[in-house]
Simulated scan of single mutants.
Amino acid sequence: MYEPIRAKSVHTMAGTSDFPHRSREEELDIQLAGHLAALLAVTDELRARAPSDDLDTAAVRLAEQVARLRGGRPPARTPATAAAGPHLTALHRRAHTLAGRALVVAASRADTAAAILTAERMDAHAARLGPRELAAR
């Protein structure tokens, strides 16, 4: 009833070696490094507005994880200034959201170190926000 397919499909990249392929793990590494780098940027902004030892430690640990995921390349960082911008509550909310996204990816790739770090950061930002702020999302 149907004639069998005799030629290769033109819609697949089968047999081409010039097309870059990444494994699922490599894609997750890239995604996790991006989330952690974004979290690091918000952490640096929070450090400029409300310096604390906790944020300093978090920034160092986040930078280490980003460098690890990027094959030893440290993340690009710009010195944050306490200029006008989002309120501290908005920054903590953004950091909490970014940490949550990073936690999902870290759990997906079974990266225990990154998962622990992001869970700790979620807890720290949730404590700063309080239950009323978190529920207002």
Rank of each mutant, 00 (worst) to 15 (best):
D111P: 00
A119E: 08
A37D: 15
E64Y: 05
R93I: 13
A38H: 09
E26G: 07
D123G: 08
A37V: 12
A76F: 07
M1L: 11
R70G: 04
P86D: 04
R137S: 14
L32F: 00
E120C: 13
H96K: 03
Y2A: 09
A33T: 00
A119I: 07
E3C: 02
K8E: 11
S23D: 11
A119Y: 05
G85K: 12
E120K: 08
V66N: 10
L46H: 10
Q65V: 03
A58N: 01
L98E: 12
L36K: 02
A80L: 09
E26M: 07
H96W: 14
R128I: 00
R93N: 12
P4L: 03
P79Y: 07
G72D: 08
L69W: 04
A115F: 00
R61W: 05
T12S: 13
T12P: 00
A102K: 06
A90D: 04
P79K: 12
P51A: 12
A106N: 02
G72K: 12
Y2R: 14
E133N: 05
A136I: 09
E45G: 12
S17K: 13
A135E: 12
H96D: 10
H87Q: 11
S23L: 11
V104M: 04
S52D: 13
L134G: 08
A83L: 09
Y2G: 03
R22Y: 15
R73V: 04
R77H: 03
H92Q: 14
A7W: 04
A114S: 12
H96I: 15
I5K: 02
D18N: 15
L62D: 00
V104P: 00
A126F: 03
L129R: 01
H35Y: 10
T112Y: 01
R93G: 04
A76P: 02
A136D: 13
T97Q: 15
V105K: 07
R101S: 13
A115S: 13
